[in-house]
C-alpha cells in the first residue's frame, strides 16, 4: 500500500505546529497503524529528520498509552485502540490525517504526544478506596451481588486513554470520571466514601479545565472499551445525592 499521511508536527508546547504531509510506501495490510508509523519513523531517521513522536506501549489495547485522532476519529475508524487498528481498514492511496488529542486539559507535549496528567489528578482526588495495606478483612466477609460486581467491572475496564475527551466537542472528561465513580460507588467496599468521592472527583475534573457535558454521546462512541453512556447519568445521580447529603456540612 502507498499512503499519504498528514501528520501534526509540533516541536514542543511553546512552538506552533502544523500538519505535514509524508508519503509512505510498501505498507502491508497486516501492519498495525503504529507499525505503519514505525516504518515512517525509520525512514525519517535515516533521512536525518526528526521522527514523529507518539505515545504507545503495550500494543495490545490495554495500557491506554496510544492516542491518535485518525481522520477525525479518536483511535480511528474501528472501535478499538490505535495499536489494534490495522492498515487493512484503509485503502491503497488513501490520505490519512493524524492529529493529537485536542483539549485544553491535554496540552501537546510534542507532535502527537499530549499530557494526560489531569486524569491522574482526578483519580488522586478520590478515585480509590481507603484500604491501607494489611487492614483488609477476609475477602469473603462481604458478599457482593453478582450484578453489582459485573457493573463495577464494566466501569473498571476504562483504560484512561482519553479518547472520550478527544472526541467530545467540549473536551469533557465526564465519561472517564463517571467510569471510576461508578466502579467504586457500586461496591460495598466503596460505599463509606461514596459521597466525598464523587464530589471531590467532579470538583477536580472541573479544576483541570475540562468542559461540561452536553450529552452528545461522542465519548461513548469513541470509547475503545465500551464504557456506556448511561454511566454519565449514573454519576450525575450520585453527585446530586451527595450534594443533598453533604452540601454545607
Amino acid at each position: 500500500m502507498r499512503l499519504n499521511l498528514r501528520v501534526w508536527r509540533q516541536q514542543n508546547p511553546d512552538t506552533p505546529g502544523a500538519m505535514v504531509t509524508y508519503e509512505v510506501d510498501g505498507i502491508s495490510r497486516d501492519m498495525s497503524f503504529l507499525e505503519m508509523l514505525d516504518t515512517l519513523n525509520e525512514d525519517l531517521i535515516l533521512r536525518g529528520e526528526d521522527p514523529v513522536a507518539f505515545d504507545h506501549d503495550c500494543r495490545e489495547g490495554i495500557c491506554g498509552a496510544c492516542s491518535l485522532v485518525i481522520n477525525g476519529d479518536a483511535h480511528g475508524p474501528e472501535r478499538t485502540t490505535t495499536c489494534q487498528l490495522h492498515m487493512r481498514s484503509f485503502a491503497d492511496g488513501d490520505t490519512i490525517d493524524v492529529e493529537p488529542w485536542r483539549a485544553a486539559a491535554f496540552p501537546v507535549v510534542k507532535d502527537l504526544v499530549v499530557d494526560r496528567g489531569a486524569f491522574d489528578r482526578i483519580i488522586q482526588a478520590g478515585g480509590y478506596i481507603t484500604a491501607p495495606t494489611g487492614s483488609a478483612p477476609e475477602a469473603h466477609a462481604t458478599a457482593v451481588p453478582k450484578a453489582d460486581a459485573d457493573s463495577a467491572f464494566e466501569h473498571a475496564e476504562c483504560i484512561g486513554c482519553g479518547a472520550c475527551v478527544a472526541a467530545c466537542p467540549n473536551g469533557s472528561a465526564m465519561l472517564f470520571t463517571s467510569a471510576k465513580v461508578n466502579h467504586l460507588n457500586v461496591l460495598p467496599q466503596g460505599s463509606p466514601e461514596r459521597e466525598t468521592r464523587v464530589l471531590d472527583m467532579v470538583a477536580a475534573m472541573d479544576d483541570e479545565g475540562f468542559g461540561g457535558c452536553t450529552l452528545t454521546g461522542e465519548c461513548a462512541t469513541a470509547c475503545p472499551k465500551g464504557i456506556p453512556m448511561p454511566s454519565i447519568a449514573a454519576m450525575n445521580r450520585e453527585w446530586l445525592r451527595a450534594v443533598r447529603k453533604h452540601g454545607g456540612s
Binding site: 484500604a131 475477602a139 458478599a143 467491572f153
Partner: peptide
C-alpha cells in the same frame, strides 16, 4: 486477595456474591 477485594478490585463472582 483480601487486600485487593478491600480496594475494590472487581474479581469475578458467583451468583451468591462470593468470589
Amino acid at each position: 486477595i483480601d487486600q485487593c477485594v478491600a480496594q475494590g478490585v472487581p474479581f469475578a463472582r458467583e451468583y451468591g456474591g462470593l468470589l
